[in-house]
Amino acid sequence: MAKRVRSMQDFDFRGTALSADEFSKGKVITTTGEPHAEYAWDCGPAISRYLEELRNGRLIARWCKRCNRTMLPPRMFCELCWCPTTEWRFVRDTGIVNTFSLCNITWDMKPLKTPQIPAVIEIDGASAGMGIMHLIGGCDPRKVRIGMKVKAVWKPAAEREGAITDILHFTPA
């Protein structure tokens, strides 16, 4: 092995940039593929019960005896003390906005006509800081603030299907 040092400046960097047209309009040889990745994810006992209670118009949490934490979404074990959780506890369907955004685009970067307002909402009755992600709606987006009190707006009971979307959104309380 030689001792000569070749510095970064001694190299021509490789990597060939293609324009959008060259890439997607057949100016270079390309092939396509479709992974067809379709899944049915099992929910497990905690989330299955969570969904069942959403159908009933209620939010349910699990309680860790050792940490005295009421956890949402519910889970069968506490990820901090690593003990099984022991009790189901209903919490309220109100809370405060921990943080939020006004999103103007879809995941594939297409513009949205009406911005979505995703938020983390700390749910009343759960332990401090226990939030869930949901949407805020039914209000002027410019009026949304961190720390604002909000409450769940539920779908009519007959239309609920046991999903997080049984809550349409949270709206100022």
């Binding site: 899944y39 994810w41 929910c43 989330i47 969570y50 969904l51 979404p73 921990n98 943080t99 939020f100 955004s101 999103c103 685009i105 879809t106 995941w107 979505q116 995703p118 938020a119 983390v120 869930i132 992600m133 949901h134 949407l135 961190i146 999903a163 997080i164 979307t165």
Partner: peptide, 27 residues
Amino acid sequence: FLTIFDHTTERALGPNLLWIFALEMNR
């Protein structure tokens, strides 16, 4: 990246990756 959101309790809301960064940045 969409599957980084919990498939049952979050992904049903139609999230995109920017959400979590926007939420973190705002906080």
